[in-house]
Amino acid sequence: MAEESIHSEIGRETSGHAVFPPFQSETFASQLLWLAISFGVLYLLMSKVALPRIAGVLAARKSAIASQLDDAAAMQAKAKDASDAHDKSIAEAKARAQALAQQARDRLAGEADASRKSLESELAAKMAAAETQIAETTAKAMANVDAIASEAAHAIIERLSGKPAAADVVAQAIAVAKQS
């Protein structure tokens, strides 16, 4: 009944100036009730549904990003290993090739050396043979020289003196000429 009278009083005043609405105490009960209902519903929905869900979404995204970063790092490490292995195999191949080349060079150098030596010794033998031949020829020629010289001397003396030359004198002269 009391509320009714307040209401009518307010009703009369509304035409002029009413009680300031935020201070109208008869509206408090309704506002409190509906605030309790709406805020209660909001709190329940937020704490039980919305916030755990968003927390899950954020956590899932964080872990997805982290795992993808890990994958990328693992991939990078694998790529680096592969490139290292590649570098190593190249280095090994290079070393092998160098060894092979060195071997070939050594072998070729040895062969060349051997053939050179055999050629040299052959040539030396040929040279020695030629030298002995030359010496023989020289000796033979020298022996012939005596005969030719004495013949020439005999002929010259006969032409100059008109009489044959004494053989022993000519031989002696030739010997003397040969000496000098």
Partner: peptide, 9 residues
């Protein structure tokens, strides 16, 4: 008690 559903609610 007046528990009306108002514009505020």
């Amino acid at each position: 008690r007046d528990l009306s559903f108002t514009n505020s609610s």
